[in-house]
Design a protein around this nucleic acid. Structure first.
Lengths: 338, 338
DNA sequence: CTGTTAGCGCGTTCAA
DNA sequence: TTGAACGCGCTAACAG
């Protein structure tokens, strides 16, 4: 109304029916006779009636709104999740509240509060820390939660993640197929779970090939950037180090390729490089980087569908922890073994 | 309240005050004496009271929620806008509803309806078409609108955009400083306003240098991708075409560099290339691409601040159309003239 | 500074 | 299948 708004009452009057009937036409059209229905719809159109969802929310205790809480939206990985979640939410008639925690736990907490105040039906969250106690505020108002890209034994609810161990494994498995003298791992800080897990996978692949996991030549960088990668690439080249390099992300891989190249070690002729993440810079062909792809779209879609299922099923719902499988994207930097 | 919820009344009882006082503590703390305030805050904490914004919205006619309607969130340009808008909204205590129209006008329209039903206070929209009539639904419920990255003479409201003409101009101006024999423009479809505007700027720069704008050697591609750019790069190289190339976006520029390179034309020694957009693939150093940078963060922040100003000022607000200036980011693909 | 009261618009009874 | 009436939780207006 806001502009002389009148609500269902006005529509009811106009259509010569009761407010309950108008409500039914909007929410359960199948329960209203075709004749009344079209009368009501006509009245709605004539009056430019816009249902007030706040009233419905107040009445029903929950809004058709789901929160999407991510650490960062500039990161293409999260952007991809947001994109698929937005699509799926759209189809289901839910609005999505974008919450960017920006690596700030306080901000994340404020977002939970806001979602609770809005009586969001639920939230998909990529939590900053796996500490589940922070999520209690949301549960308090009956919101359902799905953990995305993280798993937590303590989390009471569904979770959907991508198997980083497997990703590390297939990356190194692929490199080993080239029968290199030795293999390097360019890793990020151990404080990042992904780095830990991908490394575990890498070592698993070594062991599976009958090699000593400790023979993996490890480099650890603080910033997982192209520049750091380049530095490591130069170092590897000068030291005559491994000619097969698994980088924990694509930025590092790009840098390593450049660093190697600057020292006269060409890819893939003299060195193989595998990245991780399948960023646009790889996808769009900026660089022919062999990398580990992640089912980002499925991740988002599945997360939302788990949430909706929980909403639908209520207490009869039983939680699931899903692990999606990454896949190898073979390009020139590490071609398939002959 | 969803879990035996009781609302302000319960808090009021617990604190021994009236509901109005509780409301004041929440919304205008400065109007309540320190003593009562702390009593109320204590009660709120003890009861784990979570204000129900739906009720407030119902009462006030508008939610502290702004819609962000973008064509696509995977596009890093829009992701950057989303990021800055999210930050700014956060600071202002607004939630943001992410609406991805995905190049589908019907979906865009549904988003407007949803925002209207949620009684969003306003929306920042990057419209699919400049047709302003589609926005009426939102206005109908009193929502304020700010147009982002588009201008429309017919739009009743503020707008914030980036000056693409100027961007095209500085790009070609920079190339001209290298005193090339001639200049190529690799453009996208004329149906895209950005392509038209950047071209205008390019021609302006030609004219300003005393050259015939028609001497600009133009290539037009349908898909503005790396692959298409590569195709054009090869074509330019083989034809012995211009050795200074302005590409309408960074993907094309990357492709052109590659295509030229494949034909033995090296950058920047034998050819200069300038892109547009300053995508991550450039920023992160994947490729040392000289390009036109855009103040994306400012764009988002300013858009939201215009919206908030309009909300604050009400009818005394007067609309503004702001044009932000792009800037040249000089890297190796077209270094500064000696 | 604080209390009282009257709806905001809708979904849901319950009866007809 | 439809109608009448109630109240969800909150805030604006006014009274004290």
């Amino acid at each position: 109304m806001a502009r002389g708004e009148l609500g269902v009452a006005a529509v009811a009057r106009r259509a010569g029916v009761s407010t309950a009937t108008v409500s039914n036409v909007i929410n359960r059209p199948e329960v209203v006779s075709a004749a009344t229905r079209s009368k009501v719809l006509a009245a709605i159109k004539e009056l430019d009636f816009v249902p007030n969802r706040a009233a419905a929310t107040l009445r029903q205790g929950s809004n058709r709104l789901v929160g999407l809480v991510v650490p960062e939206i500039l990161n293409p990985f999260y952007a991809a999740i947001a994109s698929s979640v937005a699509d799926a939410a759209d189809r289901a008639g839910y609005a999505i509240a974008l919450c960017v925690s920006h690596d700030d736990p306080a901000r994340e907490l404020r977002h939970f509060e806001t979602l609770a105040e809005q009586r969001a039906a639920g939230a998909l969250v990529v939590p900053l820390s796996a500490d589940p106690s922070r999520l209690s505020q949301l549960r308090m108002v009956g919101a359902r939660l799905v953990l995305v890209d993280r798993v937590s034994a303590e989390h009471e609810g569904c979770s959907v993640a991508i198997d980083d161990v497997e990703g590390g494994r297939i990356a190194v498995e692929h490199l080993l197929a080239g029968a290199p003298r030795s293999i390097a791992l360019v890793n990020g800080p151990r404080s990042i779970p992904q780095c830990v897990n991908r490394r575990v996978g890498a070592r698993t692949a070594m062991a599976a090939a009958g090699l000593d996991p400790d023979s993996l030549v490890e480099f650890e960088v603080t910033d997982m950037t192209v520049d750091e990668g380049r530095r490591v690439g130069i170092e590897i080249a000068r030291a005559g180090g491994p000619r097969a390099v698994f980088c924990i992300n694509d930025q590092l891989a790009v840098g390593v390729m450049r660093g190697l190249g600057e020292e006269g070690v060409s890819t893939p002729a003299e060195a193989l490089v595998v990245g991780y993440g399948d960023l646009d810079l790889a996808t769009e062909g900026a660089l022919p980087l062999t990398t580990v792809g992640q089912p980002k779209r499925e991740l988002g879609e599945l997360a939302l569908s788990r949430l909706l299922a929980e909403l639908r099923e209520g207490d009869s719902h039983h939680h699931t922890a899903t692990m999606l499988q990454p896949y190898l994207v073979v390009r020139d930097s590490a071609p398939a073994a002959a």
